[in-house]
Amino acid sequence: MINLAAIVLMLLGLYALLTTKHIIKMVVGLNVFEVGLNLFVITIGFNKDGIAPILTGSNSIKDFVDPLPQAIVLTAIVIGFGITAVALMVARKIHEQYGTYDINEIGGK
């Protein structure tokens, strides 16, 4: 179920990217897309009634949640943050240059 929610989120983000003409909204769309992807990655490691993967001697490996997707998501979040920061910086520069955030208006100039 969560898989589906993640894919819906990704599609929502893509939809936003493809339809909006506003630069800041495009950045938001990109973020929604990435959040959906991160959620999808997390669901790969999901294990019902799973426990944290720490060996204590009394638990078996079967109960563990897969820790690797979580590590991947942690990295992916940081990278997404970096991309958002650069994209916002560029968006600000576009606004300085053209005085608008609307792609249509920029295209005319």
């Binding site: 495009m26 897309f33 990435e34 990655v41 520069k93 576009i94």
Partner: peptide, 21 residues
Amino acid sequence: NYVGTFNYIIVSAVGSSLYLL
């Protein structure tokens, strides 16, 4: 040419997300 750079960011970010997927 910030509009060009912005296009590059969006296309490339979606592309690498697809790769990760």
